[in-house]
Design a protein around this nucleic acid. Structure first.
Lengths: 236, 236
DNA sequence: GGCAAGTGTTTTGTATGACAATTGAAAAAT
DNA sequence: ATTTTTCAATTGTCATACAAAACACTTGCC
């Protein structure tokens, strides 16, 4: 697991929320299932009922649970789950098969990112363009894998911001996870690194020219390349 | 506000989470701001510290806050917010200008839904197609506005399911909100109702034929129509 | 004076015990 | 059989106490 956050599991309720969340995502408690009650969770994880309740509030807030007096806490149907939540997504990632997760992620990116690139090309401000260019330069200059990943993430995040639509900002989480997942696979430098940089350059060029359609196609090319990288890793 | 849930504000911590959430989304507490401490919230809303803490855990889980001992609870930068969370989205909707929200929503739909339609056309199972057809029939038969909205929602939800990609299911929330928002505007029957039904039929036809590109274009036409409805309402 | 260590203070984190509210299920009354 | 009542299990709420973290300050040392 890549270190997303420094803290391993500082507080008790965080530990509880993460652990119970992972178990739900792993399918140990199917939708519709009744969870152990608060007192039992407390015994299981050696925490007070207060801590358990706070953990459960977190999970309820993410759409995983619904609690009612006398009934207990019931796992909600999957379509209520907040799958785009950072935590839920990472629990998901640790629970399911990586290969199929990568495939789903790429499929989703293919839907979202070309549209984002097109919007960004049409609507970006000068400052937003600067940020995009800087990210590209950092990518070129990067000397280590984490640096490359960081710059890549920053690139896609900058593009997202440049689209100037608050509702699609959260989609960045998917891209984050896509890169993190890919990184889990390879744990080494992308073999097509120079190609990847060129593909990113093409996107920037289109955004500079405010060429929406061009940006869309450049992004599609980049996603195609990621597919190829994944395929190569899988074969290895 | 359309009745999303029967309960108005059953529990104390729900009431707190909703109210504080709305105030953050409304900009009363800007990102970076330090919130009142737990004891003060308790006094303000006349609730115990326990209830306040549970509300704060909910908000923290949605990415709005970060709490640390001795510091307090600080509003996170906007890009950490889980804007695709059902609650966050509805707080957002009640906080900002409806017209610009509708515009952002349509922009986002335009990116996402054509891709979903294309995927659904390619990958749908027979059962998933059934559900889509049923939703369309319910739309035709609907006698009241809530019925129409319900059937419309069900249609888009069925299409989403048919795309067979768990990661894009959460996008349905955006569509939900788009329709709810539109409904807030009009509170009466869509003047182009017959046209809307025909546009939905075109999508179904393409999905039946497993014609991905056709489904994509049919969806774009539908979104264009929604734009027209919004424009008409605004002018009124 | 400057710097280090310690000390205090504020706020969240955790635990415990008590009682209220809700609601499904069993028991009782008709 | 049906309705009503009672009961019991579980979450919801509250009050209180103490632990832990982290910033602000003070003290002591050189």
């Amino acid at each position: 697991m890549p270190k997303t956050i420094k803290k391993s599991s500082a507080t008790v309720h965080d530990r509880l929320a993460r652990s119970i969340g992972e178990r739900i995502l792993a399918g140990e408690f199917a939708p519709g299932t009744l969870l152990p009650n608060e007192a039992e969770w407390g015994k299981i994880y050696d925490g007070s009922r207060t801590a358990v309740r706070e953990a459960i509030k977190t999970l309820t807030g993410k759409g995983l649970l619904l609690s009612r007096p006398k009934i207990g806490s019931r796992v909600q149907p999957r379509e209520r789950w907040n799958l785009l939540d950072r935590d839920v997504l990472s629990w998901h990632r640790s629970a399911i098969d990586r290969r199929s997760f990568a495939a789903s992620t790429q499929e989703a990116r293919r839907i979202i990112e070309p549209g984002i690139a097109e919007l960004a090309a049409k609507k970006r401000s000068a400052e937003q363009l600067d940020r995009l260019v800087t990210a590209l330069e950092n990518m070129r200059k990067s000397k280590s894998v984490p640096q490359t990943v960081g710059a890549d993430l920053e690139f896609h995040s900058a593009l997202l911001q440049a689209a100037n639509n608050a509702l699609i900002v959260p989609f960045g989480i998917i891209i984050e996870q896509a890169l993190a997942n890919l990184f889990d696979y390879t744990s080494q430098r992308n073999p097509h690194f120079n190609l990847a940089v060129r593909l990113h350059e093409n996107i920037v060029r289109a955004v500079v020219a405010q060429d929406g359609v061009g940006a869309r196609h450049a992004m599609l090319k980049l996603i195609d390349d990621t597919d190829a990288v994944i395929a190569a890793v899988v074969k290895k």
